[in-house]
């Protein structure tokens, strides 16, 4: 039997955040799907943020806590009436605690077609120093 070339896309519902931390802003909050992977040199975060424009994306790294916030303005015009509604728009929010020390000055972020790719290079491990002891 011939092997199927590509699998069908697994369906995933848009995840609404169950308990947004101290939400003071009106609107909906969603959890974006992410891939996180690590090499010896860097940590990479890839997140699906459909509808987020470059200027509405906020990435923050503070005390090893990485926060990604992306806002999506409703794209509908004012005189449009719903025919079919399967998804809502709002804010994307996700926070991670990083274990390694990140070289903050060399973080790279790119946003293409609603996918954020964030590369966080690790700080070079401190070289072992030999301390001579004098008697």
């Amino acid at each position: 039997m011939a092997e199927k070339e590509t699998k069908d896309l697994q369906v995933k519902e848009k995840q609404e955040l169950a308990t947004p931390a101290e939400q003071t802003r009106p609107g909906l909050v969603f959890t974006p799907a992410v891939d996180i992977f690590e090499t010896e040199k860097a940590l990479t975060v890839v997140a699906d943020l459909p509808g987020v424009a470059k200027n509405d994306l906020n990435i923050d790294l503070d005390n090893n806590v990485l926060t990604i916030i992306g806002d999506v303005a409703p794209p509908e015009g004012s005189d449009e009436a719903d025919v079919l509604r399967e998804y809502r728009t709002g804010r994307y929010y996700r926070q991670f605690t990083l274990s390694d020390v990140i070289n903050q000055s060399e973080i790279e972020a790119s946003l293409t077609d609603g996918v954020l790719r964030l590369t966080l290079p690790k700080v070079e491990a401190a070289k072992p120093r030999k301390i001579p002891v004098t008697v």
Binding site: D48, P50, D79, E80, L84, V115
Partner: peptide
């Protein structure tokens, strides 16, 4: 997919990241 309409058009929007 979301579909909306006004007098003249339908507007279809779908989230297809990447």
């Amino acid at each position: 997919t979301n579909i909306t309409e006004d007098k003249n058009n339908f507007y279809l929007r779908a989230e297809l990241p990447g």
